[in-house]
Write a protein that binds this DNA or RNA. Structure first.
Lengths: 228, 228
DNA sequence: GTTGGCTATATTGCATGCAATATATGTTTT
DNA sequence: AAAACATATATTGCATGCAATATAGCCAAC
């Protein structure tokens, strides 16, 4: 079962708050994360910030360059595709596992989340919409009962937000309107096949709405391919 | 493609060396990892050790308890099953992806690894055998081209070594003799179906050789289940 | 002999300060 | 004007020291 609820370490809270900011596109991919500035902003010592950033770099959301500091990751097109590949693999399994012993309180939690998404859309809070959209998938992973899948998704979803920030086609409607609702409905009725099918399509829709064909993206040169 | 080869940070090297020790069963699950002792052992400051342990705790191999320090994880039976579940899911995909564009140098690398395993078996170096057995799977993951799958497997394999340390039935032969060789042969001949089938059976063999039925294991009481 | 409480020890949590490195600014040179 | 260099500034890397907390050892009480 779950492990005992430990008092969450301060560094974790800071890391979480940075993750939120990244998911909400309030920090752009590639941004430098200066320890001293963050230390004054969060009103803690640099040590604590360093620890938070170290955690985030281990989770892949942030990258550490020796003697240069921490930067928000900016996944390449290849990496973006790899993220979606893995999500297509994991998320159907999450649904299968979840359906094996879903509890009423899980359903309630899903509905609460859908409501939050609805409100965010109603108030056109685009930042919140993006984050909540990601967190929906993290919520499913959390409920599926496999802590390693959960952990993986807790890394892949923020990364997906970064990918959207990088490769979103500007004038696209913010996330396919209400696919989450239909997925929850399928889960609620216990229709595994339907839920999985909807999920797969949902993921495909997200990916297809992006510009991952390598053209027209204002990215830096990928030096890896040249010097590698 | 691969990212630029960064000068590996010292903390990473220390973390790697701890990981190796854990994989070789030279540090038992649950062991306390004292910062000060490790600092003197590695001849670095406590800060550096703290960073290494923080990385390891983020990867799940080590657990941090507030005000008590770091401990080597000891996965529960449930968690052990979750690890194998995820590996059964990922590793067939790794083979599929790997076969899509495997290079000659990859095959060579696999053979070098098989030789190393052979030597370790010849010299009855049980510790090395266990670590190399895990690293075989990490090698496949590394070559499959998906860095997120690679990262996941780089966490799951050391965890599996911990699980073996915890739930191994004492007088069992050390790892099903040469299943790695047959898997490589299947990969080499491009027989995807065969390679996947062998891999699945291999994983099943490993799991079945363990005592994961909840009986006869000299574990502590799982208080989580009681107070949770 | 086990439990409870007290003191002494060891360990973690955390901030700070200094050296090493990288970035930015401004000046010279071609 | 652009490039190259030199200086000044800012930032990271790292060790250390002190306060807060937990662990261990000890003695008394039951």
């Amino acid at each position: 079962m779950e492990s005992v609820k430990l008092p969450k370490i301060q560094a974790e809270k800071i890391a979480e708050s940075i993750t939120n900011a990244i998911m909400e596109h309030r920090i752009a991919p590639g941004s430098k994360l200066s320890e001293s500035r963050m230390a004054t902003a969060f009103e803690v010592s640099r040590t604590k910030i360093n620890q938070s950033l170290l955690m985030l770099s281990e989770s892949g959301l942030v990258q550490q360059l020796p003697n240069r500091g921490f930067f928000v990751s900016s996944p390449s097109i290849d990496e973006a595709k790899q993220v979606f590949f893995l999500r297509q693999l994991l998320e159907p399994e999450i649904i299968k596992e979840l359906l094996k012993n879903i509890k009423l309180k899980d359903i309630k939690r899903l509905h609460r989340h859908l409501n939050a998404e609805k409100e965010a859309r109603a108030s056109s809070n685009r930042r919140l919409i993006i984050r909540l959209s990601g967190e929906f998938h993290m919520l499913l992973a959390e409920m599926c009962g496999n802590r390693y899948i959960n952990k993986m998704m807790a890394e892949l979803c923020p990364l997906t937000c970064l990918i959207i920030a990088l490769y979103d086609v500007p004038n696209t409607p913010a996330c396919p309107e209400d696919e989450h609702t239909t997925i929850v409905a399928a889960i609620e009725s216990g229709d595994e096949e339907q839920a999985i099918s909807l999920m797969k399509h949902h993921l495909t829709h997200i990916e297809m709405a992006l510009n991952l064909d390598g053209s027209n993206n204002n990215n830096e040169v990928d030096w890896d391919k040249i010097i590698g």
